[in-house]
Design a protein around this nucleic acid. Structure first.
Lengths: 209, 209
DNA sequence: TGTACATCAGTGAACGCGCGTTCACTGATGTAC
DNA sequence: TGTACATCAGTGAACGCGCGTTCACTGATGTAC
């Protein structure tokens, strides 16, 4: 199994062997491309199979139906998302700087991969109980939470109280990302991008931590 | 046309006249009920017609297809949403109190009408250029923006600068609402509700305006 | 006030479509001996 | 090293489904005279 899904050839090869060899990964990549091109709602198992160059019945050998495949795509998204947050976190020093860096990375990921970001929150389409999905999702949330709590992490008693700054930061960037994606800051192609560049840093100034 | 859609009878009546009389409103009410019951993605024009007790061809006399009907539902949602924000705004005195009140109302609306709230942001499903929709959506945003800018409204020069606190407040409550709806604060039936009651007021404390 | 008739708001059957999944199957692989 | 054979990973045809929309139609309404 290749570590990098981008390297998987999802096109049907001329004279390709009867056995694909890496169909599972190819299907995930094809599904990912499909939703990024046409949106989560345009996903279909048949179209994914078509893109991977296999028959409509082939995916059943690797995934438990539509939900199973989408869950795998979402897990990949959460993994990349967590990586982006971790990288941003590592590049900054100090609690405020780390939160800002993660916030920018959070919105950046959403705007760079809108359909995958969308899918991550589509509880109805994916299996929230899947252990792989849970693991990568929890990891991403933990990275956020640790930065928001900063050094206070281990010193406070009431979980509720110390959760508030985390959730405030999370809500702020999540809301900004969604509003940008949903066209609230303008529907021109580059409106979301411009808002993220010029507006978001200022918006983050209004977060009291 | 009744002002209150709730009063429209959407059930097929025994011995009902051939002409429905208020089919347009009945279809909007049926569509609204359908999506609140089964989610926006489960919407179908045929099922809506079925619920309104008319043939699948009937809606075409009142709406320009699926998109037209959903746009009307979204417009109704934005109207109610704006009403809720305005009521909250009117019940508070002072900039901070008004922002808090509106924030609580914002999240309350989202949790009370999740599918309609969802639909409001589903750019792909509705006609964003519809004048009715634009009017009620703009009104809602204006109510938010006025409270966030407070008395400074007419005094500042740079639009970008004075927009930041508005967008920060908007992003925070929008993000909190979506995260709650998406199950980020727990997937138990009352998790979102509990988060809104116990967490949201504290989260709003972390907004610097 | 009565009547002819245009217009409006429905019907219901039919269309073609893409979907997810099932089914018996077959070609390729890899293992036991 | 060669061969028999079980297992695995595909095929492709077929299923039934619900969908949005079109079509010729018809019953009810309302207006002109």
């Amino acid at each position: 199994m290749p570590a990098d899904l981008d390297s998987v050839n999802i096109e049907p090869e001329k004279g390709r062997a009867y056995h694909h060899g890496a169909l599972r990964d190819a299907l995930i990549a094809a599904a990912r491309d499909l939703i990024e091109e046409r949106g989560v709602d345009a996903f279909s198992l048949r179209e994914t199979a078509r893109r991977a160059g296999v028959s409509p019945a082939a995916p059943a050998h690797h995934f438990d139906g539509t939900r199973g495949l989408l869950t795998a795509v979402a897990a990949g998204a959460f993994r990349d998302f967590g990586d982006a947050l971790a990288a941003a976190d590592g590049s900054a020093r100090g609690r405020t700087a780390r939160i800002r860096a993660q916030g920018l990375a959070y919105v950046r990921f959403a705007l760079d991969h809108p359909a995958r970001f969308d899918l991550m929150w589509r509880r109805g389409l994916i299996d929230g109980d899947d252990p792989d999905l849970k693991a990568v999702a929890d990891r991403a949330f933990l990275i956020l939470d640790r930065a928001a709590r900063g050094a206070e992490e281990a010193t406070h008693g009431s979980a509720d109280v110390e959760l508030a700054p985390s959730i405030a930061a999370w809500s702020l960037v999540h809301g900004f990302a969604r509003l940008a994606m949903e066209g609230a800051f303008g529907t021109e192609p580059d409106a979301a991008e411009r808002a993220a560049e010029t507006m978001l840093p200022r918006v983050l100034d209004h977060l009291a931590l």
